[in-house]
Amino acid sequence: MMMMRRTLLKGIGASGVLTAALAAGVLKPTQAYAADWNKAAFEAKDFAGALNGIGAANAADSKDIVLTAPEIAENGAVVPVTVLSNIRTRFPSPSCPSRIPCPCWRRSISPMAPCRKSRRASVWPRPPMSAPWSRLPTASSSARRKTSRSRPAVVAADPCKPSSR
């Protein structure tokens, strides 16, 4: 970050315009928005790999996240998948100063990294919130879908709560 700022300042100083920094590839427009795509998780070949990729290697069953998916997808083009999160959050917390709260606020010692990864399951200020997705937005969905087909009840992937609850 500091390096980028240096280059940017140099660019401005040298030419007086921002285009120098743009040309140097420092300020790519795509960088302004969202973090990197979690390639490891999306391109995992198995369920465990996908969970590992999102930082939920020790995921345990929980009633706080409920996935609802059809047993049989009658129309492959439209497969409604609902995700209901009952994780209660309060924020801002020391571990998660971002405006998006994370489920690990209770464990304020935990570093930011796992918090970021758990954002997909995160909720905002007024708990609890439900977030039904028409379609499951993860590549691990194929693996997850298998699970929910054979056992369409509860699958949990709360990376912050490996075993308890």
Binding site: V79, R135, S141
Partner: peptide
């Protein structure tokens, strides 16, 4: 990647993959 903001506050941020169909429909309750 996709994200949803309501009244300036980010309420959903998500990453999606190839499992999503063409012209996808998403629904959220906030």
């Amino acid at each position: 990647q996709m994200s949803v903001e309501v009244d300036g506050k980010a309420v959903i941020q998500g990453q999606t993959g190839t499992a999503i169909s063409r012209n996808p429909v998403f629904g959220f309750k906030v």
